[in-house]
Write a protein that binds this DNA or RNA. Sequence first.
DNA 1: GCCGAGTCTTGACATGCGTCAATGAAGACG
DNA 2: CGTCTTCATTGACGCATGTCAAGACTCGGC
Lengths: 255, 255
Amino acid sequence: MPKPARGPTPSLVPRPVEISIRELKTHCMNCSVRELCLPVGVDQDGMRQLDSLVSERMHVKKGDAIYRAGDPFVSLFAIRVGSCKSTVLGEKGYEQVSGYHMMGDIVGLDGIGSGQHGGEAVALEDTEVCVLPFHRLEDLARQVHSLLHNMHRILSREIGRDENVMLMLGSMRAEERLAVFLLGLAKRYRERGYSETEFVLRLTRADIGSYLGLTLETISRLLSRFQASGLLQVQGRVVKLLDLTALKELAGQRF
Amino acid sequence: MPKPARGPTPSLVPRPVEISIRELKTHCMNCSVRELCLPVGVDQDGMRQLDSLVSERMHVKKGDAIYRAGDPFVSLFAIRVGSCKSTVLGEKGYEQVSGYHMMGDIVGLDGIGSGQHGGEAVALEDTEVCVLPFHRLEDLARQVHSLLHNMHRILSREIGRDENVMLMLGSMRAEERLAVFLLGLAKRYRERGYSETEFVLRLTRADIGSYLGLTLETISRLLSRFQASGLLQVQGRVVKLLDLTALKELAGQRF
DNA sequence: GCCGAGTCTTGACATGCGTCAATGAAGACG
DNA sequence: CGTCTTCATTGACGCATGTCAAGACTCGGC
């Protein structure tokens, strides 16, 4: 599964002198997304142990899969830099985008129960993920209280998110869905310290459509219409939200 | 698995003398759904501890809520007998049925992450649930290996289920959705030892419609049409599936 | 055993979004 | 720098499903 690590794996126990930037960067303790990822609230000692469990960091090229449907479930993956989409597969040939994930998100959660991945995760740009062997993570979590708690929070929040998507797919009309989607992106970019009004859509129109249960043509038309009514500005994949209030209105005050 | 025992449940460990029927029945070890619930694979000792943690068993009347939107999250609930529906709430007044749960299912999972319930669970018939205080459950799970594993399996499977619903809502047409829904019910009844071809829909047409992202009229029409083409027989809420093969065909070989 | 509220069925009609198609813009790659 | 492929836009049209409405059935409660 994982690609072989490129360079020498950084040592886990802090070494006396010389610590390379690379070493610093590849530890949870120094990771820029630690506040959004597994280590939230975990103490230094726990974090060190967590670090020692991250045996490997994978570099995934744009378009490559982090895991594929049917792969045996071994590890979870934490996104360090980059982003990916996850998909579910139905047996009739259906395939649907089930999520868009960015820095700090954990992917692969669907595999725990069944022992194999039910869909795939594909990098949308060059991406780096931490590989978290699940068994060892579970073991560690039994000792580190806060880590177990975080695992449960992450699993449960995924359920909550999925249920909101269900609500969207089941009850909302096309323009509401798109508004919710855009505001959701905005919020997540804000949480990560980026502009909430100006960002790049890493998903194609087709992917967005798939995620929202619509066609790519509908997405395209809606974006044009939103632009025409001054809600936003769109140029290819670059979006600038101009009227958050109106968007929220459309989305049903959801944000 | 066994139909709800009428008479006294046969004890598993032959005990010396007098144990009341009620006592026997209200222990995980003797529960008719233990193979579908939290205790799967948990050893006797673990199960005893699990039992001692179930401080309370709630009797919920038809139409009453097990928990409501906004309730602080304290416990999970395991359904012992009966069934319920769960709903998600959107802020624009949207409400959608997000699940149908029967014996052995655990409900309330959405609350773990946020600390409060995002929707409600309403009993569809007189129902009995085991109350599982989550903090104590987490504590116990840290000691009982298999229990932690089950918790994770249950959480992950919920994610998988939700993703399949997303797939359904996003990609399938009305008749496919209904076929998938009916076959899903059939499978779950079979797993619980009931007939997979003949059962009672505990959900109203409106609830089914809400769950499937359709209107109650569409559900009604589809059921009539399925009946007309000999796929099933329907009389109010009693359904008899006549042609599983054809239904599976419709559902895309999903079962 | 009857009444009333909730549930279900069926029809007629409206419409939002999908489908098909043609063209244009933008990245990727040598 | 140009060519190829993927991605995006826009229009015309049709259909699946929603909406509205009227009436029938069912079941719990008195």
